[in-house]
Design a protein around this nucleic acid. Sequence first.
DNA 1: GCATTCCATTGGTCTGACCACTCAACCACT
DNA 2: AGTGGTTGAGTGGTCAGACCAATGGAATGC
Lengths: 206, 206
Amino acid sequence: MVMTSFRKTKAYENVLDKLKNYIKENELQPGDRLPSERELVDQLQVSRSSIREGLRAIELLGLIETKTGEGTFLRSYQSYRTLSLLAMFIFQDPNTKIDILEVKRLIEKEALKMAFASDRLGVVEQWEEIAQVKNGQTISKHRAFYQVVFQSAKNDLLEKMWRLMDEFVETFHVQQYSDRFYLKVKNVFVQDHYQEIEKIFETAEG
Amino acid sequence: MVMTSFRKTKAYENVLDKLKNYIKENELQPGDRLPSERELVDQLQVSRSSIREGLRAIELLGLIETKTGEGTFLRSYQSYRTLSLLAMFIFQDPNTKIDILEVKRLIEKEALKMAFASDRLGVVEQWEEIAQVKNGQTISKHRAFYQVVFQSAKNDLLEKMWRLMDEFVETFHVQQYSDRFYLKVKNVFVQDHYQEIEKIFETAEG
DNA sequence: GCATTCCATTGGTCTGACCACTCAACCACT
DNA sequence: AGTGGTTGAGTGGTCAGACCAATGGAATGC
């Protein structure tokens, strides 16, 4: 008996494949609406159950968003729920925790360098606005700080990756951000000392 | 009208929560079997459709594996699968192509620095072995080169991210890797000039 | 012009049905 | 006792159809 280990593709996997192509062909952007579930039934010739299995799967991934009465929409990132779910499994390997922290830190450093090169003084200006307005939680201060950075770094992918990791880290690690760190970074920017960025990150702080 | 932005949790999300607890309480290990879909219907008091939406979602994530006629089984987590899923959609955005190239280059640079700090001479040694053995295509030479790097950089996440980008870049961009580049990097390693790594990447080459 | 009502559309959920596959218990034959 | 085939219960895979709640725009009334 020949055992051609041939895995029959499931209906919902086909749905995802078709959906991916649909998004590509129509060049859908985050926020754009996907066809309704019932329209997809007609177009893909599978039952609504299968359609929904596929949609729920990528919803969990945070790739789409559904609104009752309106429809299904593409979105760009975010899904704290999934991350906390994955966290449980990912930490079967304790090393990944360290890896994530390391990569996140690396991204922060490089993003700062990119922002520095792109719009050094503009960044400083925005940081000062934040410092005046925001007296809120340290976590939102932290995000506001880097939002400015990524806006000037002009690399959406890098920002998406950072946000994922930042949210993920939040699931297992109480992040502490010292005001000293922000101040140090700002001074480096003000004084136009590009090389110092590397050195700041060589210390344990961050 | 008060708009308490209150998101009603969906049935399949509850399923996942309960399932997570079940796994935790019973200390299920990869390979262990979960309750059948029909059993879960009884236990969780939701319809089989909702059960399946949840199961299909975490199946896509690679957390479980289903075998027709047998059941649903816990699976050892495969982070690459999750990452490639996310990448599949994130990379879809045509605007990110340039971003990907930039981030990939950034990762290569930082990985080199990590490898340098970790095992400078060991890396050089392995590079020389490659140079002798491999006379094959430039693409495989390129991958072998960085495989050595990542092995010493000791960060799996970084390597996986790089692999995804490298594979993706191949689909739209003819990668050119000049022997001169490798040689330059090797020399920097041999001569123990850590600072030069940054400078190599400041040129257009790569 | 504006507020209200109404209704088609959309996602959310459930029920019940049928199929293909797996595995173990059972049975018949040697 | 051992072999091999049959059978049936259980499992995931898929489907059709139904009802609900929320949404938003069109029709309506003032």
